[in-house]
């Protein structure tokens, strides 16, 4: 079952999730499952046949000598990894 909010965004990735859900429910899976989409997003497959994107993880990346701009006390910290592309 695809949540109504996602119907307009049907794509091959969602098709894969639907197949996994069908597989899981067919074999009587009784717990929620964690899975990853083709594009690397975490999803939770519920035992009732629905799914949702997993809440975003929060990473605590130390500064560890990296270059910074702005105040240490700033409310927002943006960490950017770059290779000058």
């Amino acid at each position: 079952m695809i949540p109504p909010a996602l119907k307009g965004h049907f794509n091959p990735m969602i098709k894969h999730i639907t197949i996994i859900l069908a597989f899981a429910t067919s074999f009587g899976i009784t717990q929620d499952l964690n899975a990853k989409t083709d594009d690397g997003k975490d999803v939770i497959l519920h035992k009732n046949g629905t799914w949702e994107y997993a809440p975003k993880k929060i990473f605590d990346i130390p500064i560890d000598g990296s270059f910074t701009i702005g105040r240490n006390e700033a409310k927002v910290t943006i960490v950017e990894w770059t290779d000058f592309q």
Binding site: I61, F67, T68, I69, G70, R71, A74, V76, E80
Partner: peptide, 12 residues
């Protein structure tokens, strides 16, 4: 956002 945002640049 000079006061509210800190940007950390890391290499990859």
């Amino acid at each position: 956002y000079p006061n509210d945002v800190r940007i950390v640049i890391k290499n990859y």
